[in-house]
């Protein structure tokens, strides 16, 4: 029982950053914009959050800056793919290449002189677990209610995201823009504006995911802190069928793989560490293949927004 509670607690901790970023990418993709820059945005916001916390000691400020960095990078993507109608795949890739390069550079420049200006190896103020009274003492449930504030906030953020997307007028507008921008435009919806907004909103949520990596899940900065999580997020959006509530399962699945990995490594198994570390990437490929085959069978529930990845201009015929 104790083991299950611990494993579950680690799973949720590891899944938090994935869940924030997945929610963000769902919003962006629902508006028709495919942003493959998540990895770079997560990396940069993870660095931003850590360095702000390191120098100011303010976690709130750190999170705000991380969101701003995520939004800022996503707006570059929005400008390139919406206004300049660039290829969205390449534009997103450029955000990732730039973000990971810049984070690596700044990580070796922003640190204190005593550490050779390097931020790696420094420690900063990070989130500590909050134990919710009563609920935090019940076995199993304790895993859910002994978490840091960012994980706990997800109990509100995920349902809110779902309600917004499927039960409000604004959510309907968002989905209309992603499904059929031409009709949406004819109805007087400013397609480009809506896409800008949700690309930025997505960027903020990805920024939160990045912040949780360096301030929550594994406090501290290292150059490969994201380790491909930004790409796993893109797969999780497909896994979730572009639905915020289903994103939970993906985050728990991959958080769980992380938790089991650590457990096995600590216990010392015969499986070499390299193979254990491959697990998330192999599972991503398998999940992707299964979802693609499922999506073919059951069109609708698991298929992407119709206009995903395409640019839209009124003057084009």
């Amino acid at each position: 029982m104790q083991l299950i509670t611990t494993l579950l607690a680690v799973t949720l901790g590891a899944g938090t950053s994935l869940l924030y970023a997945t929610l963000g990418e769902i919003y962006t993709e629902r508006s028709g914009i495919l942003n493959l820059g998540v990895e770079g945005m997560m990396m940069m916001s993870a660095l931003a959050a850590f360095s702000v916390s390191f120098y100011t000691g303010s976690l709130l400020l750190a999170v705000i800056v991380a969101m701003a960095v995520g939004a800022g990078l996503s707006l570059i993507h929005a400008f390139l793919s919406i206004t300049m109608r660039a290829n969205q795949v390449v534009s997103g890739l450029s955000i990732t290449l730039f973000g990971t390069g810049l984070a690596s550079y700044l990580g070796q420049r922003l640190g204190p002189a005593s550490n050779g200006r390097n931020l790696a190896g420094m420690s900063a103020k990070s989130f500590s677990d909050i134990s919710v009274p009563v609920l935090g003492d019940i076995p199993i449930l304790a895993a859910f209610f002994n978490q840091d504030i960012m994980t706990l906030l997800l109990f509100i953020v995920v349902p809110a995201a779902w309600i917004f997307m499927f039960k409000t007028r604004s959510g309907l507008t968002l989905r209309a823009v992603g499904e059929n921008p031409r009709t949406a435009s004819a109805m007087g919806i400013p397609v480009a504006g809506i896409r800008y907004i949700y690309t930025a909103v997505g960027g903020m949520l990805v920024g939160l995911g990045g912040a949780h990596l360096t301030l929550g899940y594994t406090p501290g900065w290292s150059e490969n802190v994201t380790g491909g999580r930004g790409w796993i997020v893109i797969a999780l959006v497909i896994f979730a069928g572009w639905n915020p509530s289903r994103a939970i399962f993906g985050a728990v699945l991959f958080g769980g793989i992380n938790a089991i990995q650590f457990r096995l490594q600590a216990a010392g198994t015969v499986i070499p560490a390299s193979f254990l570390n491959m697990a998330p990437y192999i599972v991503t490929i398998i999940v992707l293949a299964v979802m693609t085959l499922l999506g073919r069978k059951r069109r609708g529930t698991y298929s992407p927004p119709s206009a995903l990845g395409t640019s839209f201009a009124i003057e084009d015929k």
Partner: peptide, 20 residues
């Protein structure tokens, strides 16, 4: 840091994509 080279390379694509 040598990764300045990566930053410059990453930056190349932005004006390129905007200009196409």
């Amino acid at each position: 840091p040598a990764s300045m080279g990566l930053v410059l390379q990453g930056l190349l694509l932005f004006p390129l994509l905007a200009g196409t």
